[in-house]
Write a protein that binds this DNA or RNA. Structure first.
Lengths: 110, 110
DNA sequence: TAAAATTACTACGACAGATGGAGTAAAAGA
DNA sequence: TCTTTTACTCCATCTGTCGTAGTAATTTTA
């Protein structure tokens, strides 16, 4: 339903918001995004995993292995203190983005 | 204040929203974006003009010359019927985007 | 119990939109 | 006349997303 064209710029923040709840891994994050958005947004696997790589490089998340009980070996990620700061910053930015975009799109007729 | 990283995906729609009011040209559009956003968002010139090219190629806007009274020769743009349709579609998409992103970022703690 | 589906990634090349920087050009203002 | 403002145009580069393909282990189903 929603294209990553419009979601671009918020993919990283969405991932962080879920890791804020509990450490998780790619496949689960993907499912949770789909579920929580009521199937309105499905993040592509390649997009998701490249986001992980990027976020880890920036020290916003940290990876670790956990003794899994089922399925293939997973790489778990948890959010760092720096990642939490970044999320708060992005949260503020999102509030401002809505204000600004609404100034043009919603408030302004149509 | 706002980066085009977060605005990307809505630049075209913002431009169309202003052309919906009256035909205009690059320099003026740039100023109106800055003003209406209370200096929170400044669209880069290159971004703006490349958006014009893209939008015209897609038949969402149409260019014309007008007898100008001052300054350098301007290229004016007006929105087409197809552009209006596209805008309405993007408007709906924006409402949905807000809903979905808020599900993760705002409603969800922090 | 063998085949199919699901889980869980990794690699790679292509592409579109945004950016920085440089340059051009005409008119208005000091 | 020199500077500022208006009004673009061109180009090379970067970043994030995408499509496609492949790997691998475990669970389900036939």
């Amino acid at each position: 339903m929603l294209s990553s064209d419009t979601m671009r710029g918020y993919n990283d923040t969405i991932i962080l918001s879920l890791l804020l709840e509990w450490p998780s891994y790619g496949y689960e994050i993907a499912k949770r995004i789909k579920e929580r958005s009521n199937n309105k947004y499905v993040m592509k696997e390649t997009t998701l995993y490249s986001a992980f790589t990027r976020l880890e490089k920036q020290d916003y998340i940290r990876s670790f292995q956990q003794d899994k009980t089922m399925g293939r070996r997973r790489t778990y990620y948890e959010i760092t203190a720096k990642g939490r700061e970044y999320f708060d910053q992005k949260h503020q930015e999102w509030l401002l983005t809505q204000e600004v975009v609404n100034q043009f799109i919603t408030d302004n007729r149509s």
